[in-house]
Write a protein that binds this DNA or RNA. Structure first.
Lengths: 219, 219
DNA sequence: CTCGCATTGGACTTGGCGGTCCAATAATCT
DNA sequence: AGATTATTGGACCGCCAAGTCCAATGCGAG
């Protein structure tokens, strides 16, 4: 790969973006279409089972376009899809994740999370992507760990604001509580994928939330 | 694949095994060697990055042998490795997992689990395998879900025996507690793979164990 | 011993798929 | 308008890895 052309690599807020010297709106649209189409296919059949020809077909583009907008080919596309899906994961929790300062917003958030993963069911985009890119690309590892950092940060902010509002005992450890909640979600998703049962996610998430929401969560 | 030869497919206790009409001890040894070599490679570099030639080289076997003992080729081998690794996952928890009737055995088990996954570090065999076989083979799904069922069963038995011994409050829900513990482990492993930090596993597992071990677990 | 089947070696075929290339066309700028 | 660059189409290449095949050899049974 001898890609020393006029493109420049930027790094901003945790994900990499290829900026062309000039990128028309048409080009940007094509690029977006490719990422979203690829993401869709990978949700359906997994990243490993998705090849470039399928992406071309489903997005009505040609090889030259794909390699024009993703000079690193498949690897670059996978990375872009990873960034995209990471953003989707956060998006699914909005608006609640951004303001977890009340008991109500926490329960609303919990419901949104459960609903999201129930919808997703078997297909977990990030899970499939990380396992394929895990070893090869350090970029992808960064994208995933950035996602988890942002996620953890948002949860910590939530716990903290409950704490300062006195809605929660003062001895609740902020970071550990946030981490338990996040870990419960990830474990719940693993179990959901493996067993097709949602109860693991629900039960573990409720248990992780118990220190801050009390025993009232049992629906 | 026109494989209607003299082999017969058996199904016993959750995993499939190919029984040859006659299988010499030498043949059995070769087969075992292939599975273990493949498992080792897949731990090192991931399942997707491991090809048959590497397996042949590392196990000192030839193509014909591999396809002789695994008529379904790569798929069959992957399945065998999945079964193997599922067994290894349980093995890593022995002897503790088989008798969780005391507080001491629980803490010893906890330590063994954490130690095991710290050793494993990035490379999580089951995680890598399930994502590759997840969609394609329903057999592999079975293997994984069987593993989790056995795991959950062992944990439930442990909680139950604490309960009848009166070492734990009577209102502890056996199944839900076991599921929370299992989910905490899975989530902890996901976070370990993603962030390279063990604290998620430790913290979440301790939190999940708190209902039965009390607050004394904080090391 | 010798017959038959299990076991083994390794060359060969095949296809899929990532990646390259060039030429045509559409925008954009001056 | 004309020059320049972005965008597009799609034929083509070449590699890699899975799977096939046949012939040679070991090994146990009668």
């Amino acid at each position: 790969m001898r890609q020393s052309d006029h493109r420049v690599q930027f790094r901003l807020s945790g994900y990499s973006e290829v900026m062309n010297a000039r990128l028309t709106s048409r080009g940007a649209a094509t690029k977006r279409r490719i990422v979203q189409g690829a993401a869709m296919l990978m949700r359906e059949q997994g990243a490993a089972e998705t090849n470039l020809d399928q992406v071309l077909q489903v997005t009505a583009t040609s090889k030259s376009q794909l390699f024009h907008y993703f000079p690193d080919g498949r690897t670059g596309l996978l990375l872009a899809v990873t960034d995209f899906e990471a953003e989707q994961a956060m998006e699914a929790q909005r608006p609640y994740i951004d303001d977890l300062s009340t008991i109500e917003s926490w329960t609303a958030w919990r419901d949104a999370v459960v609903r999201h993963y129930v919808e997703l069911g078997q297909r977990c985009p990030m899970g499939a992507l990380t396992s394929e890119l895990g070893t090869s690309s350090p970029e992808a590892r960064r994208a995933v760990s950035d996602l988890f950092d942002r996620w953890e940060g948002a949860l910590m902010a939530g716990v903290q604001s409950l704490l300062v509002a006195g809605l929660v005992p003062a001895d609740v450890p902020v970071r550990d509580t946030a981490r338990c909640i996040l870990t419960a979600i990830q474990g719940g998703v693993v179990m959901l994928r493996a067993t097709d049962r949602v109860s693991y996610l629900k039960t573990a998430l409720d248990a992780a939330l118990r220190p801050i929401l009390g025993a009232s969560v049992a629906a």
